[in-house]
Nucleic acid binder design. Structure first.
Ligand code: ZN
Length: 286
DNA sequence: GATGCCGGGGC
DNA sequence: GCCCCGGCATC
């Protein structure tokens, strides 16, 4: 199983709350159509899957990488960065594996994991597959070993746009670790907050214009071999290079003159403290 | 170009 | 906490 080298995906991939299971079997937990999802926005075409973390560093315990969200063909990945486990999400550089068993949206980070999932959850509870060790069933022997390969796909994460430096500024975004946040986005009813700047990449705007989504989604069938029709799903993330015009994220400049304008640079000592610090003026508030 | 100020860094 | 500044949006 080849794992293409991919450039690091910017940590701005996701601000959402990290879902976490206290159970060992969380890996097979799947949610479809979250109960409180507004019916008018996602129209049932919605899936959430826990992402397995085999890459988790020791001491961090079992965890969930994030949540794959698919809404009307747009796919978003939320991650765990910014959480108490903040760190370089190295698993973002790689390929994810998604179960394609009908109705199942389990996603794992390794080929072995998804194969194990398919075997245990779908093909049978036993680690071994079907009839090869029974002595009969000679006809389908050649499919016995890797039948699970038919029931998962690779998902490549790659960067469609890479800012010149994503090393230090772009890596630290405060996560909105609020479970309602995701629904608010989908609902497009999140309350206005002027300090919402750069909150997150998963802007699923109310408009259904597909070009406004930061994620692009494409699927291709790659004939790797005759026996493994692995479907490659590419998730391309576009950093906000072409921003939406006049996002509601930044404070609108008021019309009142502020200290800088009133007193001028030459009387900087007369400015209010906030103006001296290039913060929002506290003397001539809007 | 000037202004306002957010985010971030140094101390 | 205080203080400063880069960079960006806006005027
Ligand atoms: Zn002021």
């Amino acid at each position: 199983m080849t794992k293409p080298e991919l450039s690091p995906v910017a940590a701005r991939l996701g601000p959402l709350k990290v879902l976490r299971s206290t159970r060992r079997e969380w890996r097979t937990t799947v949610r479809r159509a979250p109960p409180r999802l507004p019916s008018n926005s996602a129209a049932g075409n919605w899936a959430t899957a826990y992402v397995e973390s085999r890459m988790w560093r020791p001491g961090l315990g079992d965890g969930v990488l994030g949540v794959i969200v698919a809404v009307r063909g747009r796919v978003a990945l939320t991650t765990k960065y910014g959480s108490p486990l903040a760190g370089t999400p190295t698993y973002m550089n790689r390929t994810l594996f998604q179960c394609t068993w009908p109705g199942c949206v389990v996603i794992t980070t390794s080929c072995d994991s998804i194969e194990a999932h398919v075997r245990t959850a779908h093909l049978g509870p036993r680690g071994e597959v079907s009839s090869s060790d029974n002595g009969y069933g000679d006809e389908d022997v050649d499919f016995d070993d890797h039948e699970e390969e038919f029931y998962y796909t690779e998902i490549e994460l790659e960067e469609a746009y890479s800012p010149p430096t994503l090393s230090h500024r772009d890596m630290a975004r405060p996560p909105h670790e609020d479970p309602e946040y995701q629904k608010s986005l989908l609902n497009s009813s999140l309350p206005y907050s002027r300090r919402f700047a750069s909150a997150g990449p998963i802007n699923i705007p109310k408009s259904t214009n597909a070009n406004t989504a930061p994620w692009s989604f494409s699927a291709t069938n790659v004939p790797l071999s005759t026996a493994s029709p692995v479907k490659h799903l590419k998730l391309s993330f576009s950093a906000p290079a072409s921003k939406l015009p006049s996002s509601p994220t930044r404070r609108v400049r008021g019309e009142t003159k502020k200290c800088r304008k009133v007193y001028g640079m030459e009387h900087r000592d007369q400015w209010c403290t906030q103006c001296k610090w290039k913060k929002a003026c506290s003397r001539f508030g809007d």
